[in-house]
Design a protein around this nucleic acid. Structure first.
Length: 381
DNA sequence: GAGCTAGGACGGCGTGCATG
DNA sequence: CATGCACGCCGTCCTAGCTC
């Protein structure tokens, strides 16, 4: 009887053989496996990241304990990882985000939804990975992420090699935004034209502007600012100059962070207090925590394959793994947090090691009850 | 820097399952 | 029964990283 207390059981429910089969068809991969199917590979990448397996060879020795995975030779794993298109895992990830992404939301800025955009660079050094250029000997891939701050969940990830700059990818992350959402990002996440575009599409933003961005026709906000506070300047201005100058006037708030660094952000949120604007920007650190988790579970020694396909497959497997664990954590936390105050990291550690206390396991089980009836059963045990 | 080990990729070969 | 091919196993080659 499934009770959701094993990752493999969750996977059986949320990533069915049928769905993977359909995706194989979509991406032109004919799966002729007798023993280790594309569906198995998908599960393999998700489980391997949660269990911190270190390589194909390492995985080969640990796989027999996973009842849901057939044990195969490491060379079979490697071959399969090269051939099954990574887009399958990528699409499974975005489908899961859509399906399960409507969970609890702590209302920080009602009625706004807060999203952060940022990227993380995963560098590695291996001649067989030179497709991911960066410097002559160092290679890297970048994950450009849109992150739901209140839920602690990524909602969109775009992968590139180390060469590409944030600014070129940013517009992709701005394409599909819910109404009444605020997007917050660091320098490098908007050109002057992006500010204007976002504004014209009625999307709110709080994005740091680079020092070299020039302003024109600055107007200081008339309201007196608290001299002892962290907010230094609250003004409106046009951003950029010459042909790049924005058509609209935007608000710019300058404040100091905890380390005393001066930060200037541009926003089109005119009604909020400058302290709130600074606070929204500060909430960006949530995405950093997410990246830290991803990197902790995906450091250079843990990248299994060398081909782009194997690397990206593993990346998306890890993201799915994070997303599912985060979802369980978010959805059950309210029920057990009076008794136990686990952080997400602690929760996942215990979940994988099966050392969660009874109350937590019961909460997870009842979550499965709620969702299980909605999910299509494949008949696979 | 030499020597060693771990690990990925690949190819060859044998086996045995599946399909007709 | 013949054919095709997935899979396991092995050897080889290569690189990274560690140790002395």
């Amino acid at each position: 009887m499934s009770n959701f207390n094993k990752l493999s059981e969750i996977l059986q429910t949320f990533i069915t053989e049928e769905e993977v089969k359909n995706l194989c068809e979509k991406w032109g991969y004919t799966d002729t496996a007798r023993k280790f199917s594309a569906h198995d590979l998908v599960h393999f990448f998700i489980i391997s990241s949660a269990k911190k397996w270190e390589s194909f060879r390492d995985a080969e020795t640990k796989m027999p304990k996973e009842k849901s995975l057939p044990s195969v030779d490491y060379s079979t794993l490697a071959k399969k990882a090269q051939h099954v298109p990574y887009q399958i895992l990528q699409e499974l990830f975005s489908r899961l985000v859509k399906r399960l992404g409507r969970g609890v939301r702590r209302a920080l800025f009602k009625p706004y939804k807060l999203f952060a955009v940022d990227s993380t660079t995963i560098t590695f050094q291996h001649p067989d990975r030179s497709w991911a250029g960066y410097t002559r000997t160092r290679h890297a891939i970048r994950l450009h992420t849109k992150f739901d701050v209140e839920k602690g969940q990524p909602t969109q990830v775009v992968q590139t090699t180390g060469r590409d700059h944030d600014v070129m990818v940013a517009p992709k992350l701005y394409e599909d935004l819910e109404s009444l959402s605020i997007i917050t990002g660091d320098r490098g996440y908007a050109r002057t034209s992006d500010f204007q575009d976002l504004h014209e599409r009625n999307q709110f933003f709080v994005i740091r502007v680079a020092k070299f961005f020039s302003l024109s026709e600055e107007l200081e906000h008339s309201a007196p600012l608290d001299a002892g506070g962290k907010v230094k300047v609250d003004q409106t201005a046009f951003i950029g100059k010459g042909t790049r100058k924005t058509k609209s006037r935007f608000r710019l708030v300058t404040f100091t962070d905890n380390e005393g660094n001066e930060i200037r952000v541009a926003t089109n949120l005119m009604m909020m207090s400058p302290e709130d604007i600074a606070y929204i920007y500060k909430l960006r650190w949530q995405i950093e925590l997410f990246f830290r988790w991803v990197k902790g579970n995906l450091d250079l020694s843990n990248l299994f394959g060398n081909s782009p396909n194997a690397v990206y497959s593993q990346v998306y497997g890890t993201l799915i793994s994070y997303f599912l664990l985060r979802w369980i954590y978010n959805e059950t936390k309210e029920e057990w947090e009076i008794l136990h105050s686990y952080t997400f990291i602690e929760f996942t550690r215990r979940y994988i090691a099966h050392t969660l206390p009874m109350e937590v396991r019961c909460a997870i089980k009842s979550l499965f009850g709620k969702w299980g009836s909605l999910c299509v059963s494949t008949g696979k045990i």
